[in-house]
């Protein structure tokens, strides 16, 4: 049932990477519980523009949980408190009349704030460029079932591939570690025959890049897994460690 609620927002405002940020408080009235969290922010921005103020900058794109653009640390949780949803899939029906909602950007040294709630996640792209691909030389078209892959393996690979690169794992981690992301990207390829060929090289260069970019050392707190909107499991991190240690021992 649609309801209208009044809420107070505490939003992090920061003009640029070098500038000092602070919280600003806004009151919003008559927000429909049917609206999504980002629609609520659109309403806020519309209101700010009407008052001839600068709107709150935040990342978003598909608004259906597949692109990984939306971020936001909402009331102490990346992507809000709901499990397995991205911020764009979060609904205002999860909030009550009179609630105060604190919205912060991802905070991690490797993800500097660009402006307000938007952070620079290009570090993830750099990790991908370091090895998150297969160099295909496909030749002719193979028969669809020429290389049989056991269902459980295909499932594991598919689960790892559901990572959308949003960075919530880094945002949630007290060590600023990117291991869940890197492990998902390494696993989705290492599990399948096409990716196995370059597996050792890939894991070494991706980890080297991750370390170089200033992400932390994983101490297995599992905060990443608890907050990941795609429920990527830390068993991928065990696989990443395994792949890396084996690759290094073989050298």
């Amino acid at each position: 049932m649609e309801k209208l609620i009044n809420i107070t927002l505490k939003v992090w405002r920061q003009r640029g990477p070098q500038e000092k940020g602070a919280f600003e408080t806004y009151q919003l009235e008559n927000i429909s519980t049917e609206s999504s969290f980002l629609e609520m922010l659109d309403v806020l921005n519309e209101k700010l523009v009407k008052e001839r103020k600068e709107p709150v900058v935040f990342d978003h794109d598909c608004r259906e949980g597949i692109c990984g653009m939306c971020s936001l640390y909402i009331n102490g949780h990346p992507h809000g408190k709901d499990q397995e949803v991205t911020t764009c899939q979060l609904h205002m029906r999860r909030f009550n009349d009179g609630d105060t909602i604190t919205i912060e950007p991802w905070r991690s040294a490797a993800f500097p704030v660009i402006r307000d709630l938007m952070v620079d996640r290009s570090a993830f792209d750099k990790i991908m460029q370091a090895g998150g691909y297969t160099s295909v030389n496909t030749g002719g078209i193979p028969d669809a079932n020429a290389i049989p892959i056991p269902k459980p393996v295909a499932d594991e690979a598919m689960d790892a591939a559901s990572c959308i690169g949003c960075g919530a794992c880094v945002a949630a981690c007290k060590n600023g570690s990117a291991m869940l992301f890197v492990s998902a990207k390494v696993s989705q390829l290492a599990l399948l025959p096409q990716g196995k060929v370059e597996a050792a090289k890939r894991v070494k260069s991706m980890i080297a890049k991750m370390d170089e970019l200033g992400f932390g050392n994983c101490t297995n707190t599992r905060a990443c897994e608890a907050e990941c909107p795609k429920a990527v499991s830390i068993s991928n991190i065990a696989r990443l460690n395994r792949e890396f240690i084996c690759a290094k021992l073989k050298d």
Partner: peptide, 18 residues
Amino acid sequence: NRKARGEQRYAVSENQGS
């Protein structure tokens, strides 16, 4: 790890349950 976490801390942080 403290360095990787960065200078800015979250104002609100809630335990993640598990």
